[in-house]
Design a protein around this nucleic acid. Structure first.
Length: 510
RNA sequence: GGCCCGUUGGUCAAUCGGUUAAGACGCCUCCCUUUCACGGAGGAAUGAGGGGUUCGAUUCCCCUACGGGCUACCA
């Protein structure tokens, strides 16, 4: 039974943007599936109709695709285990819930929300701030345990709204073997009678995961640590439904924490601290509010999955930069950490920088073209192809290419005069005036010629070449950055160079 | 409150009883470069506390402290 083909699933609920932790969960599932030549399934957990958000499902699919970790099966790639949206599997859950009732593992409960509320306030105390529907309270409530068979039948035939709750056994040790954490033991009398089937006929997560993981032949169930407390319910359900022999292996991933303070990382933290939390831009259809994504902030997909993979896992070798193929090869669930990791945006940028540096011009070119054209800069591919390798080590994110590339195509609009003026004088001004004349009569326009001309002339005028190089740079690019000046001069051409010296001269001479 | 999980530098982290406790990010110094980067060489910075077990604990066990998660007809 442990020789079954590996099948794992990522099961988000379509309630909004896809958060770092979600992508990492998807990624670990993906890596595991690929490593074991298994299948990666996307299942949409949309059982809460009140939280359904338009467009969220497509957004999830798009994010995974951008990351390069698209599922093998899912709503958009149907396989033989569909449908992959829980809302479309509604009918199957009731059957199992009823089966649990007839086996004595679950019961009908007719308590209204108001009655539940009343129970919680009535039983609330300092010792017990949040009373549960469990062995201490269940016999005081309105359910098929306290009502006669006739009353229950009548209520059901009268279509009185009701839920089905699991009947937690009294004194039982529920053991869970977690790949990351080892054996975790829960005591059944401390777990409450969770709702399995809601009054609207939809299952809760608890029933749905088990039924679907079974139906979809999931062999390894991976999810975030926040699910650990409800794991005993799931284990029991596998047992009660008679499926113990095919219960998946479990692993609960550590949480990704806020960079400062403590607690789970949330979208708010990103807004507050100025970094993305979602994989891609997300626009809330209700409020219209736009939340920035890693993609749009200029991250490369390979860098993104690399940094995510290493946030909570490493192969022990010290290697930090992994391609997707290497991740698949080296990944192991056993080496995922137990403790949560604080997200560090600086390190994230470092990862991206490493990937930018090692990326080919071909890969960078279309991204850079899009960046520049969306900033109304007209480019030509030939120049871009020569310029990209010259400046990519200066770019942490794709968006940095704008500053580093812009001056190759348009004259700088603002010059960093402060960098020049304190040391600017008549002599230097005169130098550039004669430099312009020399350049005009230059026989051929190449780095060597330009540089020779520049140096010879400055020496001839009693200036150190270095002293006039910075002003020259500022004239050409606008600031103290960029590759070798003479190379820039060559690439932007004679006309632009002369023009920029001219405008530079006038702004320095003010 | 209860239950569960966790705790090595500011951050990510290696170590599977014996190490001068790796490496990376960030920070600082220097070199390269008369720009900015890249690259190179250095530096500061870590085992929460207390008990055990052991010849020997960062490593195994217990307690305490601290942090987190969960405690919905949400996932």
């Amino acid at each position: 039974m442990h020789q079954r083909p590996v099948r794992v699933r990522f099961a988000p609920s379509p309630t909004g943007g896809l958060h770092l932790g979600g992508v990492r969960t998807a990624l670990y599932n993906y890596l595991f599936a690929k490593k074991h030549h298994g299948t990666f399934v996307l299942r949409i957990e949309d059982t809460d109709q009140t939280r359904y958000v338009q467009g969220a499902e497509q957004y999830i699919v798009d994010c995974l695709e951008w990351c390069g970790i698209s599922p093998d099966e899912g709503p958009h790639r149907p396989g033989k285990f569909g449908p992959y949206r829980q809302s479309e599997r509604k009918d199957v859950y009731r059957v199992f819930a009823e089966q649990l009732v007839s086996n004595g593992h679950a019961y009908y409960a007719f308590d209204t929300p108001e009655e539940l509320e009343k129970m919680r306030t009535d039983f609330k105390s300092d010792n017990n701030p949040s009373p549960q529907y469990n062995h201490t309270t269940r016999m005081k409530m309105c359910n098929s345990l306290t009502l006669s068979k006739e009353e229950v039948e009548k209520k059901i035939s009268d279509k009185v709204p009701h839920v089905i709750r699991i009947l937690m056994p009294d004194q039982e040790e529920i053991k869970l073997n977690d790949i990351i954490r080892g054996e975790v033991v829960f005591h059944s009398h401390l777990v409450d009678d969770k709702v399995l089937l809601k009054a609207d006929g939809m299952p809760t997560y608890h029933l749905a995961v088990v039924v679907d993981d079974h139906a979809m032949e999931i062999t390894h169930a991976f999810r975030g640590e926040e699910w650990l407390p409800s794991a005993p319910v799931h284990v029991l359900l596998w047992q009660f439904l008679g499926w113990s022999d095919v219960m998946p292996a479990w692993a609960h991933f550590p949480l990704i924490l806020k960079p400062d303070g403590q607690g789970k990382l949330s979208k708010r933290d990103g807004d507050r601290l100025g970094f993305p939390v979602f994989a891609m831009d997300w626009r809330d259809p209700k409020t219209g509010e736009l939340t920035k994504g890693f993609k749009e902030m200029g991250f490369l997909p390979d860098a993104y999955i690399n940094l995510l993979a290493l946030l909570g896992w490493n192969d022990g070798s010290g290697q930090e930069i992994f391609s997707k193929e290497e991740l698949i090869q080296h990944f192991s669930v056993e080496r995922i950490h137990k403790s949560g990791a604080k997200f560090d945006f600086e390190k994230a940028k470092w990862y991206n920088h490493e990937w930018v540096k090692k990326s080919s011009t071909d890969l960078l070119l279309p991204l850079v073209q899009e960046l520049l054209s969306s900033n109304q800069i007209h480019t030509n591919d030939e120049l871009l192809q020569t310029a990209i390798p010259l400046i990519k080590e200066r770019c942490h994110v794709i968006n940095d290419f704008l500053l580093q590339l812009k001056y190759f195509f348009v004259d700088p609009t603002q010059l960093d005069t402060e960098a020049v003026k304190p040391k600017w004088d008549e002599k230097k001004s005169a130098f550039f005036q004669s430099f312009v004349k020399e350049l005009e009569s230059l026989s051929s326009w190449n780095i060597e010629e330009i540089e020779k001309c520049f140096k010879d002339l400055s020496l001839a005028q009693g200036l150190k070449p270095g002293d006039v190089q910075l002003p020259f740079r500022v004239m050409l690019v606008g600031g103290k950055f960029g590759p070798a000046v003479f190379e820039i001069a060559q690439l932007i051409g004679k006309d632009a160079t002369l023009r920029r010296i001219d405008t530079g001269l006038s702004s320095f001479n003010i």
